[in-house]
Design a protein around this nucleic acid. Sequence first.
DNA 1: ATAGCCGGTGTTATCGATAACATTCCCGTT
DNA 2: AACGGGAATGTTATCGATAACACCGGCTAT
Lengths: 336, 336
Amino acid sequence: MDKVARSPAMTDVARLAGVSHQTVSRVLNDHPNVKEQTRIRVRAAIAELNYRPNRAARALVTGRSQLIGVVARNSTLYGPASMLTEFEQAAADAGFAVSVGSVRELDRSSISSVVDRHLDQRVAGLVVIANVASAAEALAEIPSDVPVVFIDGDPASGRPLVTVDQVAGARAATKHLLDAGHQTVWHVSGPTDWFDSAGRIQGWRETLEEAGAEVPPLLSADWSAAEGYRSGQMLARMPEVTAIFTANDHLALGILRALHERGRRVPHEVSVVGFDDVPEAAFFIPPLTTVRQAFGDVARAALGLLLGQMRAEAETPEHIVVPPRLVVRESVGRPL
Amino acid sequence: MDKVARSPAMTDVARLAGVSHQTVSRVLNDHPNVKEQTRIRVRAAIAELNYRPNRAARALVTGRSQLIGVVARNSTLYGPASMLTEFEQAAADAGFAVSVGSVRELDRSSISSVVDRHLDQRVAGLVVIANVASAAEALAEIPSDVPVVFIDGDPASGRPLVTVDQVAGARAATKHLLDAGHQTVWHVSGPTDWFDSAGRIQGWRETLEEAGAEVPPLLSADWSAAEGYRSGQMLARMPEVTAIFTANDHLALGILRALHERGRRVPHEVSVVGFDDVPEAAFFIPPLTTVRQAFGDVARAALGLLLGQMRAEAETPEHIVVPPRLVVRESVGRPL
DNA sequence: ATAGCCGGTGTTATCGATAACATTCCCGTT
DNA sequence: AACGGGAATGTTATCGATAACACCGGCTAT
């Protein structure tokens, strides 16, 4: 008697189709030299038995699984979280599973332990969402024979990389405020060791300089509404502050609250622009003008680079830049 | 000449330690019958070669990988996203990798395709974050020989399950408002097919009934700030509405904005309580009183149930309920 | 005609682990 | 002294796929 419900293997298919298991393998991998008629017979047998190849066996012999490892910081921040689900979706569409390796901090030891875990699983490729500079040294250790794509990583690293054009986004936001008639624009940035923050700071500063506007001192914070609130309490006290560009929407939320408490009306007295376009941004008080990043595009581009590396050995260290888009709502007005 | 950098296998370790590969295997799997001295020698060889077992080979022969599959809805909602990262963290600590399978909708075909993908990978167990009723039928198909734990699933399913006590959370929120002196409490719920929503509705309704308060008509929405805003516009027009309990913080945000636009002050004229305690909740205008769910506890409990099933064959369909906690801030006041 | 080539297929080795069974050695009993 | 039993270890089979190579027939080029 058969073992109950043992799932069928390649030889079972082969027997049913009257061929060798190797031919079944060829059909599965779309090898050219298989007669059309046999191909059809094999396909029929596969369907009849509801056969599904054993990934472990394949991984063993090829030394590579159908699994893509993602290294990301453990975070419920909107940006990173969106990035992850978008990537997972893209990978699934291409027939890959995604193994996530969250890490509390992007420091050397955490990263290399997660990378090791992924390499244990013989991942087909790695995606690293390395949004801070401190990650760089740990990432240098990744062996060069496994395909890697960075997202939001160091633009100078020379590794395949996909980023949102933070500089352009910040320029658009700053320019939008200057165009409304403001003398200058204050900026509350994210942590300065994040590449995102650095790009946004750069875009903001350059735009002011090009417009001949004075560059006010930079306020930097983490990404939280809490720190936005603290910065906002300070800014609200300064009557010369009429325009604020924040590095993300949550910071903007904190600032809106601080301004509100201090009785400074937005957008009548003070204008605010955020970054990210979180789903709630349209429901802040007032609805927030912000910069939207196309995470889906980034994810798909990253997957494309990865698949490219997996196919060809030609490792062209491409750098894809995805443009962001200004979303205009009601938090910007003309100065009094 | 050796192939360059081929990673060492068990036989390499065995040769170095002067034992058979089987003994190495026993050391790795903590089998009892190995002399302490050999164990030490093998461990030394492992360390010297920096040997790491090949998961694919192990998975092939045991028929099971060190991978836990997660089925979840593709979502950047705070709750589900937190759940996922917390679970990943817990699993990593226990030596498991996590493969996420997002799904756009929790319908039958999407779920079974994701489950199939996971089974292809020979996952050691499955975690299903099945927060809507429609998922139930698809989940019935999961073969019974693979360990499964549900999170936020059907309390009546008879499968191992971990949930947050939504009813208790809603009771606490509603009671908090009644205790402040309000005649009754309005509720804006999430989609009614979510178990979370159902529990919160039940807790709200029961508390009102027990207090002898009138039960106002239920407003239901999706989870977005957008729908919160729409509901809020309606509620703001009704002077008899003085207390609102919303099914999540984003809904509350939309409502706060609608009340603000209509000139109804919070908490002086209207009190609002949310659910989730998203990180920004403390920075809403005013800071939001809400109910915090301990996602980390849920994740760890789920992992525990899963490991239990993997070890013992005794599948005790446990049901673990994690209590939530009311976080009091400034959005609740006494009625005028 | 015959050598060579190539499309189509089967045979056998292989990946790196665990499982099942075999073997050795040492000890305490009778 | 002979025996049985269990601890410690080795040998061989096995999982299910791909890779390398062998084979067979029919076709083309000489």
